[in-house]
């Protein structure tokens, strides 16, 4: 199983980025082995619009089954729902802490987007 975490940096000590679409990196990680890879979200960062959708496609194409992030807007949320990716919002701290918490089952899967605006 792979999970994706929106991150401000490229390793497990990086903070979780509260923004999904405009986060600089996604850490794609196997929570059982803690093996990970950082995926650049540069493509979304320079987009005049649609960064959330672009970022969602990036995560979906990595075959992640769960996303941990701060906030997720309605369009990206719709894409995740269609691709059967569970979204967990309100995640804080470092990537490592977030993954540990996820493994202990402390998070609840979001049933709706956490923000309305796609410009955040």
């Amino acid at each position: 199983m792979k999970i994706a975490v929106s991150a401000q940096g490229k390793d497990l000590d990086a903070n979780v980025d509260p923004r999904f679409g405009r986060a600089p990196y996604f850490i794609i990680i196997d929570p059982d082995t803690m093996e990970y890879e950082a995926v650049d979200n540069k493509q979304s960062l320079n987009m005049p619009q649609g960064a959330g959708v672009q970022a969602a496609m990036t995560v979906i194409n990595q075959n992640a089954e769960v996303l941990l992030t701060g906030n997720c807007g309605p369009k990206a949320f719709r894409a995740f729902k269609a691709a059967n990716v569970d979204v967990i919002t309100g995640v804080k701290g470092t990537v490592k802490e977030a993954v540990e918490k996820f493994k202990r089952g402390e998070y609840k899967i979001a049933s709706a987007p956490s923000v309305r605006s796609h410009w955040s």
């Binding site: 649609g50 959708v53 496609m57 369009k75 719709r78 269609a82």
Partner: peptide, 16 residues
């Protein structure tokens, strides 16, 4: 990014 093709379906985001 107004159209997002997924494996199972294609999403359209009209406002984009």
């Amino acid at each position: 990014k107004a159209i997002a093709p997924l494996e199972s379906t294609v999403l359209v985001f009209p406002e984009l």
